[in-house]
Simulated assay, not measured.
Amino acid sequence: MVIPIHDVNPVRRAPLVTTALVLVNVVVFLLTPGAAATPAGEPGPGAVCGQAAFYDRYAAIPRELVGNRPLPRVATGRVVETAGGRPACATDRPPYAKIPALSVLYAMFLHGSWLHLLGNMLYLWIFGNNIEDRLGRLGYLLLYLVSGYAAAYGFALAAPESTTPLIGASGAIAGVLGAYLVAFPRARVWSLVPFLFFIPLVLPAWAVLGLWFLLQWFYSLGYTVPGTGSVAYLAHVIGFVTGVLVMLLARAVGPGPASPGRYPPDGRPAGVGRPPRGR
């Protein structure tokens, strides 16, 4: 696994949609229970149950998506004791009306921890601006939303009985990565390589994003590393493939706002030998 820092791929217009998506994700996170979680220690039963109730209400839940109806019982946020004296989260009929299709949209802006949020925003900030430049702001936003919905519903169809909430922008951002791989496979990406003591290297986008996709696919088959068991890798795979297909379709239909003749796949503007350093 490599960690991208920035790409050498300049844009012609300010990435307003990408910036707005990052800001909205950060603001929403600060207003949700996940912001109170710290890596220093485990949250108490009250915090766990409160977070469970919040996600049952707003997150995308596979069984709800497949059946298009809310769960009959959800977490209430209260802590009760089991017969063995252990704390547990109380459940009851939901006191609210939940629309499963809208929960997918809400879930795209929910994150479980600071690490979850920052990891997603790093990839969105590095790769999103060029896709926004290539597709235009509306086209880019549609790609983001379509990829997020495809990832959530695709995962739900693969695990229709799951009641584990799906949260995070990973599926939508995976679509952005897939689109970037198609549009700019030879763009240079400064990356840190952990097994080389985090030495910064310049790698082509096809290597960085191709390796990312292969790891997601590998893990989706059931081969995981410690501490990653709660990650919906299949949703990442589906989102990435959706982004690839959308970009291939956009390229087949027409050049779009950023003409390939003026903005070739390697990120070099026409007539410029060495592009300026991007983000």
Rank of each mutant, 00 (worst) to 15 (best):
G271Y: 15
E64R: 01
P62L: 09
F109R: 07
D7G: 12
S147L: 09
V80N: 07
G136W: 05
G254L: 10
V2C: 04
L142S: 06
L138Q: 11
G119K: 07
T82I: 12
L21R: 02
L214S: 15
Y180R: 14
L65A: 06
A252P: 07
A159N: 12
L234H: 11
S113I: 10
G44P: 14
Y55S: 11
P255R: 04
G210A: 08
A159P: 04
R12F: 03
R268E: 04
Q51C: 00
A205H: 01
L249M: 03
R134H: 04
V176I: 15
Y144R: 12
I131S: 00
Y263R: 14
I199C: 08
N129W: 01
L209P: 00
P194K: 11
D56P: 01
V80H: 05
G175D: 02
I167F: 03
A151Y: 00
I199A: 13
G273T: 13
L145T: 14
Y140I: 06
F127L: 09
S230M: 10
G128Y: 09
F213W: 13
V225I: 12
A37L: 15
L65V: 06
A179W: 03
T82D: 13
P95G: 07
R57G: 02
L177I: 03
A187V: 00
V27W: 04
Y180S: 15
Q51V: 06
L23M: 08
P100E: 01
L141Q: 05
S113V: 03
Y180M: 15
R274V: 15
T91Q: 08
I199L: 12
A35G: 04
R69W: 02
T76K: 02
S170T: 13
A20S: 02
V241H: 05
R63T: 10
L30P: 02
P100M: 03
G46R: 08
G273F: 09
Y153I: 09
L177M: 10
L181Y: 05
Y263N: 14
L135K: 07
N130P: 00
F29H: 06
Y58R: 09
T163A: 07
P204A: 02
Y55R: 11
P200F: 02
R12S: 11
L31N: 03
G148D: 06
G261A: 07
F218M: 15
G112K: 13
P45L: 13
P95Q: 08
V8E: 01
R69T: 14
L221A: 12
G271C: 13
W125N: 03
A151P: 08
G171F: 03
L23I: 14
T163K: 04
P160C: 11
P15V: 06
L23N: 00
L122W: 00
L118A: 14
S113T: 14
R134W: 02
N130V: 03
M247E: 11
A172I: 12
P72G: 05
E132L: 09
E132A: 08
S230D: 13
Q216W: 09
G67K: 08
T91A: 01
R268A: 09
I126N: 00
A53V: 04
D7S: 14
V74N: 00
V79A: 13
I99P: 04
V193Y: 07
G46P: 03
G84N: 10
A14G: 02
G77H: 01
R12A: 10
P87R: 09
V272A: 04
D133I: 10
S162R: 08
P43C: 06
L209W: 00
S220K: 07
G222P: 04
M1S: 13
L31H: 01
Q216M: 15
R251A: 09
